[in-house]
Each structure stands twice: as C-alpha cells, then as structure tokens.
Amino acid sequence: MDVSADGIIFWVVVPYVTFAVLVVGSIWRYRYDKFGWTTRSSELYEKRLLRYGSPLFHYGLLFVVLGHFLGLVIPKSWTEAVGISEGFYHFIATSMGTAAAVVAVAGLLILIYRRRATGPVFLATTRMDKTMYVFLAGSLLSGAWATVETQILAGGHGYDYRETISPWFRSLWYLQPEAALMAGVPAAFQVHILVAMLLFALWPFTRLVHAFSAPVQYPFRPYVVYRSREASVSSRAPRPGWDPSETPRRH
C-alpha cells in the first residue's frame, strides 16, 4: 500500500521521536534532577477536594491504561482463540472503557477545578504544570470522544481499531512500522494518538515522572531501612582528578 509523506511523518517519525524523547528525557531528568523527581503534592494546602479528585483520577487512569494494554497489545487473534467474540469484546471494552473514562475525567475535572480555585494550589502551579494539564486533558478528552463517536454513536460493533491501530502500534515495537494501517483511521482516533504522543514527549519534563517511581518494591522490603553513612558517602561518583596513584605494572 502507498503511504503518503504525511503518513510517514505522523505514524512513523513522530512515534519514534516521541519514544526517544521519553526515554532519553527520563534518563536525563533522573540524572540531572533527582531532587525534582517528586509528586509535588499539594495535599497540605487542600484535602477536601483532593480526597475525591485524586483517587478518582488515578484509579480511573489505571483502568484506562489497562484497557489500552488489552486493546493495543493483545492481538485480536488471541482473544478470538480463547473464544471471545468480536461483539462480546466490543461490549466489554466499550462499557468498561467508558466507565473508566468517566471516572478519570470526573477526577481530572475536580483536580483542575481545585487547582484553579484554591489559592495556594494555584500559586504552586508552574508553567510546566499548566502545559502538561493541557495535553493530559487533551489526550483524555480526545480519547473519550473517539470512543463515544466511533464506538457508541456509530452503532453496531463500532469501529474495530484492532484491525488498524493495534497492529500499527505493535508494528512500531518490532521495528517494521506499517504506517499504511493508519491511513483510514477515523480522525478522532488520529487526533487522540497525536495528542497522546505529544504528552509522552512532554512527560519527562513534567511532574508526570512520578508515575515512574511507583513504589512497587515497598511490599517486599523490611519495614525499617538501615543505611551506612559510609555507603551513602562512597556511592557518590568520585570527582575527576582523584584517581589513586598505582604502581605501574612491569611487563
């Protein structure tokens, strides 16, 4: 199939660039700015709205991510092999996805309202935060709209993204990008994907990095942590010019 130059740019170049920025940017940020790597919680300022907004948003988002994993990574042939019909898949994905989206969007709206309306929280919002919010809300809303437009309003089984978007997504990972698959995808999905890629490119430079430090190791470590002073001192990379003098070895 022929692929337009636009197609190459949007569905091959942009994804790989995004991925590179995400990975390199995260490594750079981690090395350059460990101290800035935090949730920067504003709970101290305001608890009442956060109490509802934050769990709604985060848990909703976790289900959204899970849904994306199932839809994008698991090939259609696999689900069919275990006897899940297209109709059943469509029903589950649309209903669960819509529910998760509603929860996440509701949480996000509460959080954005809180951030704007609570004086100290708004003052603690950086320009980077605001930019991030635009893209975060953009991805969430465009994704929700894509689902509503193509899955619910369209009737029937809706648009089967597992024939186009999902294979394209997987093709990126085994380095044989098939941009052609994306040519006929509804505009709503295309917009969603592009906005999301911009969000991922922005990711390492925002507070979203806290997602990478989810404390998964916490359940597996002993409660009380001991560290030696010397260990913390010697873990620092030695400064240049401090190599020990060693006797040259004679051959």
Partner: peptide, 24 residues
C-alpha cells in the same frame, strides 16, 4: 513507600534521602 528514609547504621540518626523521596 520509596525507601527514602533510613536509620544510619553508625549512630542511629534517622534521615530522609532527599534525592530518593518522592513526596508520598
């Protein structure tokens, strides 16, 4: 959760590793 707080082995002083704290 991050394991950023620790008790120093040598003198038992409890400290926060500021580079590892994630603000939970």
């Amino acid at each position: 959760p991050s394991g950023a707080m620790y008790k120093r082995v040598e003198d038992g002083i409890v400290l926060v590793d500021q580079d590892q704290c994630r603000g939970w």
